[in-house]
Design a protein around this nucleic acid. Sequence first.
DNA 1: CTGAAAGCGCTTACAG
DNA 2: CTGAAAGCGCTTACAG
Lengths: 346, 346
Amino acid sequence: MRAKHPARKARGSRSRRAITLRVIADEAGVSPSTVSRIINGTAKVSDQLKVAVQAAIAKHDFRPDAAARGLALGRSLTIGVLSQAIDSPFYAEGLRGVEKRLLQAGYAALFMSGNWNEADEDRCLREFIDRGVDGIIMFSGCLADSAVRRYARRVPIVVTGRSLRGPRIFSLPVNDREGARLAARHLIEAGHRRIAFITGAENHPDGLERLSGYRTALADAAIEFDPHLVAEGNWHEDGGFRAVNGLLDSGRRFTAVFCVNDQTAHGAYLGLFRRGLKIPDDVSVVGFDDLPSSSYVLPPLTSVRQSVHELGEQSAEAILAILAGRRPRVDPPQIKVIVRESTRRL
Amino acid sequence: MRAKHPARKARGSRSRRAITLRVIADEAGVSPSTVSRIINGTAKVSDQLKVAVQAAIAKHDFRPDAAARGLALGRSLTIGVLSQAIDSPFYAEGLRGVEKRLLQAGYAALFMSGNWNEADEDRCLREFIDRGVDGIIMFSGCLADSAVRRYARRVPIVVTGRSLRGPRIFSLPVNDREGARLAARHLIEAGHRRIAFITGAENHPDGLERLSGYRTALADAAIEFDPHLVAEGNWHEDGGFRAVNGLLDSGRRFTAVFCVNDQTAHGAYLGLFRRGLKIPDDVSVVGFDDLPSSSYVLPPLTSVRQSVHELGEQSAEAILAILAGRRPRVDPPQIKVIVRESTRRL
DNA sequence: CTGAAAGCGCTTACAG
DNA sequence: CTGAAAGCGCTTACAG
């Protein structure tokens, strides 16, 4: 005869759970299976037992162990979310959007930072897989398509900012090029013809797309592209700062500068300020991303907005849909330029 | 006789792992126990077996299932990290610091947002516990001490920004009051006597501490505290904006405004700008937190710096120490005012 | 040094 | 409707 509670060696960790399905079951005088069924609403159970069990659960404030449930179910109710940096103001809003939607669905987000480099991104995805996430959301990133496809064999992936097709992959393209074209056109329509462009770091696709949109707008207006008017930044404030300085030092004339993102524009602001140049009187500036802080910068920055927050929510919805066996369907957030006070008519 | 691989019902989920310890073991001709030992370096194993097993592991790119390991070990190698918002520029740096240190130690951070309210903070901590985190890091927050103590019975907790003693609780106090005193003193030493203060939202302790530091500095300099000079903000830009407007509308004279945090100061910048007031010529402004963006704001903002990044790293180190059974020891990051261009001598 | 077995805390066919 | 049992994929005493 087997004892109902075989003596168990208390193995190490004091964090071993004190209350388990078993103790709830004993207390309510039922089997663990029944408790499980009640908790999960996974079968009809007589009201009588239900009441007893619920009382025991309430009494102990019991919640089933996630690891055990995960193991039994093969699901972790966790989504791996890769951004480039947990402290990047750009991704921040997106993460917020993801977190919100996932929470509503009972999922948790496991956030990790790819640090703008392929090796780290790869490490993160691996870690996600190892930790048994049910799905992955990648905010852009420079990981090779082939690698993404490989990981997608293990778990569904939604990627933003690139268009990548494949089984268990869903992508939410971001219209960087169009946004950039719109921004440059705005400047052109205001009479600017000598428009400098400050890039991001080289390898990232978004930056290239934005550069390309800028060139398209120029071409549309029959303005010749001047390579001396493009300066290299690094997506961050300091890059924008150095880049405007370089531009100014070059002696090349320009009446406006279009920055690959708002952080770069903020850096450019300081560079211009240091040279005693007024925005927009001496030079107009436009950014990209429309960070929350850009409405508060002086003067408030004209920027192209594509609601990363919405993008985050949509990514979450997409991964949830895939997990539920539905086809994700989204209409990409509208992209438009928010005109504020950093640009003026020439 | 029991078959070595009893036929198993393939239960649902296609994400069921294909390769397990079992298959590696079979392939290398050893038992799962041995594979486990090799992976964990948990016992001497003959080189011969080791080689065979490692080959099989490499071939399949095998990594043990985290949920299973977690269940067996009673540890998840995950730390729950509560901040007020995943997209707050203030906490961002701290999260970054945590992530970095945790990663080095092989732990992952599970980030969740408390949204500046007790109910959400409580929900997050619960979720952490349910998900079996090995420890929790809380960035300030307004959850009642008693609740923190209760959760600490389940898992060690390190809290920043408050001093809370208790078993399995370690706190990293943040010297808000002293920082605020220093900032206000800086203004006073520059000749200001009518110094306005913009607060955070009411309930948060940090804000009260900062207000108190401001009052101390005033008292030290024998300047009478004028309640009409304190305006209520909300920790965010819009609150700062509205607050300066209120101050200006009140007709009360002031030559400087000390803001409870940098975001508030950024909002105040815009408010002043809209009224045609120059910083620092017409009014000096000082913030608190020294956000990265504050060096790029125009003019660069004088602010008190307490390195949240460092605080994050220290929190991570502390929780790691506790888990390793060591006593955490940290020297709190130095607090000082970074003088930039938003303040001038009267 | 190595394997068979029990156990971690759940879930869910299977059999009443 | 309900329980006993097997299984999820690991780890680790226990016994050679």
